[in-house]
């Protein structure tokens, strides 16, 4: 009996290892649901839906035979992931380049910040004119919205590298590539990853804009048609999906950062 108890206790030992913020997070879920339903009580039907109706609609849409939601989700995710993927692929090397070549970085800074501040909606007509209404246009819109946060944050991270460590590298005969890999990149990583998280959020907003302003597809179009027909329960089910995509992407990025960060630096990251 006693050994069984002890066995049970050691089986549950992993529970003690779960970080405090995870417990607090779990605690927040019912709180948010309560708040949500309180809010729903105060707003007339047809403008809002409470958690029960929303989650029921979500379940029905997910299990629906015509799979409208799943197809829309697939369309949205592919635009979104291609867009932010391309932004990372272009933004990180460009940010490294601008951070390493100070003159180039200083010269281009007003332009990159200007482009970052331009609402992507304003560029939509131009993009449609150039590449049409198809998937390319959508990916381009997401790319434009997500590029500058990555680029600017990467550049800032590179410029923030301790100059004394760079000098150390130089005086110990490390080549430019060795210095980049072992000094600059580790130093710039936290800023770079913060930029990616911001880009993931800006990119999701841009995905919806792209789906509404070019050929109507994906979750954005679904949202529009549900809103127009006042089906608020399904409407908020889609809103919930957007929130999950946003939280999921930033969560994955945080996890990647954790993997890339050497243990002594981890205390400072998420």
């Amino acid at each position: 009996m006693k050994t069984e108890l002890r066995q049970a206790a050691s089986d549950l030992a992993w529970l003690a290892k779960v970080p405090r913020h995870v417990w607090l997070r779990l605690l927040l879920v019912p709180l948010l649901l309560l708040l949500w339903s309180a809010l729903a009580k105060g707003i007339p039907d047809g403008y809002f839906a409470g958690p029960y109706l929303t989650l029921r609609a979500l379940f029905l849409m997910l299990t629906d035979d015509r799979r409208k939601l799943l197809i829309a989700l697939w369309e949205t995710l592919s635009v979104y992931l291609w867009g932010i993927g391309a932004a990372a692929l272009i933004g990180i090397p460009a940010g490294l380049l601008l951070g390493l070549c100070r003159t180039l970085g200083r010269t281009l800074s007003p332009f990159s910040h200007g482009l970052a501040a331009t609402p992507v909606v304003a560029l939509v007509p131009l993009i449609i004119l150039m590449v049409g209404l198809g998937a390319e246009a959508k990916v381009l819109i997401v790319l434009l919205a997500a590029l500058m946060p990555v680029l600017i944050a990467t550049e800032a991270g590179v410029r923030g590298t301790d100059p004394e460590l760079i000098e150390m590298g130089r005086s110990y005969g490390m080549g430019a590539l060795t210095r980049l890999r072992h000094i600059v990149l580790p130093a710039a990583l936290p800023s770079l990853m913060a930029g990616l998280r911001l880009a993931a959020i800006a990119g999701l907003v841009a995905t919806v804009i792209a789906e509404l302003y070019t050929a109507m597809t994906g979750l954005g179009a679904l949202l529009q048609s549900l809103g127009n027909s006042y089906r608020m329960d399904s409407y908020f089910a889609v809103v919930v999906i957007f929130a999950i995509i946003g939280a999921g992407t930033t969560g994955i990025l945080t996890w990647i950062e954790h993997l890339l960060t050497p243990p002594p630096e981890r205390r400072r990251s998420h």
């Binding site: 004394e164 000098e167 072992h182 000094i183 580790p186 050497p262």
Partner: peptide, 10 residues
């Protein structure tokens, strides 16, 4: 160097 300038992440 006066301060050791080790790479903390290596």
């Amino acid at each position: 160097f006066q301060n050791t300038r080790l790479l903390p992440w290596r």
